[in-house]
Amino acid sequence: MSAKILVVEDEPAIADAVGYALSEAGYEVDTVGDGDDAIAAARDTSYDLMILDLLLPGTQGMDVCRTLRSESDLPIVMLTAREAEADRVGVSRSARMTM
């Protein structure tokens, strides 16, 4: 059985491209476009990995990460256009992980 990945990305072109590439690589992929749907999907389905955009409509990526981190061990990979040091520190603190 292939691993299941949840892609959280509000920009359809990027969600489509990431989803396509992962599917081609043999993973099972679900895609959602906002933070609230991401939390609901993660609670509903047992995923092996989440790929999470930082800037989302509604609940922001950082808050999604914080919420899920408090209730599960789901590995989360942040997908973002932000490169600033402050963002990296913010993410690693939120996720309690070393980047």
Binding site: A13, D16, V18, A21
Partner: peptide, 10 residues
């Protein structure tokens, strides 16, 4: 630009 670049890559 990222949207275009990823689409081209795919």
């Amino acid at each position: 630009l990222t949207g275009i670049a990823t689409a081209v890559q795919v």
